[in-house]
Design a protein around this nucleic acid. Structure first.
Lengths: 342, 342
DNA sequence: TCCGCCAATGTAAACGTTTCAAACCTTCAT
DNA sequence: ATGAAGGTTTGAAACGTTTACATTGGCGGA
């Protein structure tokens, strides 16, 4: 009595069998309107609530998908999860969320939990998409999955991303076009993010193409927001870097703040560009110039892809979405540093 | 064969019974080391993975909790979910995530899904904590739940929040102390957020206490980031508002951007303050002055509370965490508007 | 030698669904 | 009157666990 009513209770109450009740729930069209009404009334009267776990046990599909992101503290991922969640909701799918905190070691544990939950499929943003045991496991177990933001080198893996290297290439090139010759990349640690490395590669290629030999790089821990010390050498040292290409918008915003702390103006003294296109970037001053990717749509798209794979569609497709440089004013023409006159 | 191995398979393989296998998994201490080794080996050999849904069906507890937030697009909520997720992970709990998109109508549907999943408990941020059918339902069904960011007027509901009214009061008072007499509140729509209304109440109280009769209010749709038009009247009209108290940091950042678009400087012409304390606020220029709340800790705390309730602890406690005004420079001393000289 | 005890293991009945095959009942043509 | 047809409904067997209870066997004490 005190316990939750089950289908059996509904059946008893409505004088019909448990099978009929099930049919009312799952295939209302297959049941006469009259019968359906009786059953529905009984369900309402008893406050019946189907126990999804019973169904999950019986059915092969669980209508559940697992999501793994590095963190929700970076709006890029939060927004993509928002997209996933929206699309999942629209399709009657339940989302189980996990995060790795950027720690590759934690990925396997998280995915294991997800698999124990018998999710129908997964959407993952991994630290490193290549040579990743998680990917191998999923492939071996033939669990549908889509990578988000990762660009694996294997072609038989579904992945949705922008061209990471090209994003950084474009940003660096834009700065070079404005006369900057001394550039540095501010990147998250490569071990925690293959995007970071790919973006650095693009940065290097841009400098090579422009005949600039000197490539500066500063790697910072993820979650770090104080870049005053890490950037001190580059900004105030003899290299006198005037262009900072940041591997994420969060880093770019932190970099702008650090420049300011060093008494440098953006974009007058230093140009700063980001990658990701988080919405807050468009609101700050100076408006952040960023290689924008359609984050939320990417999340939705990832779920759409995943649904395809779950439905049995074979040969996973990869999708490289276009990015574009936003017209922020955090980058400007090169000027000899006024402060050097002091 | 092609199907996933079950406990029965493991039992067969190890020459033991299914009950013993279960014991190895759940109460390894109750089983001789030798036996455990055999079973573990069999599990490894077969690539066995416990089916949590089988367990969930049998057990009363599901080790799953449901989370409902308005959106993940606002870092406040993303960060709190991050906190929840961390704490859940540390306690072996699975998190099911849903969002209402700020639409009160969608809350019931989301919670229904969660209940069908037989979650052990819920953490919710509701549009309106009072007279909410969702709350009534949860109370009636005796499902443990904790409200996050909401301040319900009933005392028998667990809720974790800062003092919303006081936050706004403090911010408005800070501006008044700096000489501002013409203030406006920029708030999200009250129907979508009781915090918004509570904060407005605090704003009004501060003005009353200072003997300022004229109270301006502009309500904007959630998700809206373009405040240029909505703020035009206040900033450029005859009222010449010089202080904007914003009900969220996201709004504050958007407001600063709008001021700039109107040719006004922050904080020289207009002071802008926010509430929430999202981390990006500390990085932008001018550094955002905000009534900071410990968002991530609030998420963790909420989960801790919830675990207590699930364990059977009766009489839910509310927790009102302290906030503090950050020392941002987005608010400054009142000055007669220079632009009015034109 | 027998008894009882204890540790180790096994048996089998749930948990709440879904679903296949079978049963039931009208209706209608023969 | 008989039977085929077809629309409704039902019975019962899973799905993969957990767990109360039963069984086993070895051992020490009487």
């Amino acid at each position: 009595m005190s316990s939750k009513p089950t289908m059996r209770d509904v059946a008893r109450k409505s004088g019909l069998s448990i099978a009929t009740v099930s049919r009312v729930i799952n295939f209302p069209a297959d049941v006469p309107a009259e019968t359906a009404k009786i059953v529905t009334a009984a369900m309402a009267y008893l406050n019946y609530r189907p126990n999804i776990n019973g169904r999950r046990l019986k059915m092969t599909q669980t209508s559940t998908i697992g999501v793994l992101v590095p963190t929700l503290a970076n709006p890029v991922f939060a927004t993509s999860v928002q997209g996933i969640e929206q699309e999942a909701n629209a399709n009657g799918l339940t989302v189980i969320l996990t995060s790795s905190e950027y720690d590759p070691e934690r990925e396997m544990g998280a995915v294991s939990t997800l698999l124990n939950n018998r999710v129908d499929g997964l959407i993952l943003t991994l630290a490193n998409a290549d040579n990743n045991p998680v990917v191998d496991l999923l492939l071996a177990e033939k669990i549908p999955f889509v990578l988000l933001f990762n660009q694996p080198s294997r072609a038989d893996i579904a992945a949705i991303s922008v061209d990471n290297a090209q994003s950084a290439y474009d940003m660096a090139t834009a700065m070079i076009a404005k006369g900057h010759r001394s550039l540095a990349m501010v990147a998250g640690q490569f071990e925690s993010s293959d995007r970071s490395r790919q973006r650095y590669d693009g940065f290097c290629r841009a400098l090579d193409d422009a005949g600039i030999a000197q490539k500066h790089l500063v790697q910072v821990r993820f979650g770090e927001t104080d870049l005053v010390a890490p950037l001190a050498d580059f900004l105030c040292g003899p290299e006198e870097v005037t262009g900072l290409v940041c591997s994420t918008d969060m880093l770019a915003i932190a970099a702008i703040s650090a420049c300011r702390a060093h008494g440098l103006s953006v974009p007058d003294d230093v140009s700063v560009g980001g990658i990701d296109g988080i919405s807050v970037g468009g609101l700050i001053t100076p408006k952040l110039c960023s290689a924008v990717q359609p984050t939320q749509e990417m999340g939705q798209q990832a779920l759409a892809f995943l649904r395809g794979l779950i439905k049995g569609q074979t040969n996973p497709q990869s999708l490289l979405l276009p990015h574009h440089l936003s017209d922020g004013d955090s980058i400007g023409d090169f000027r000899r540093r006024s402060s050097t006159l002091l």
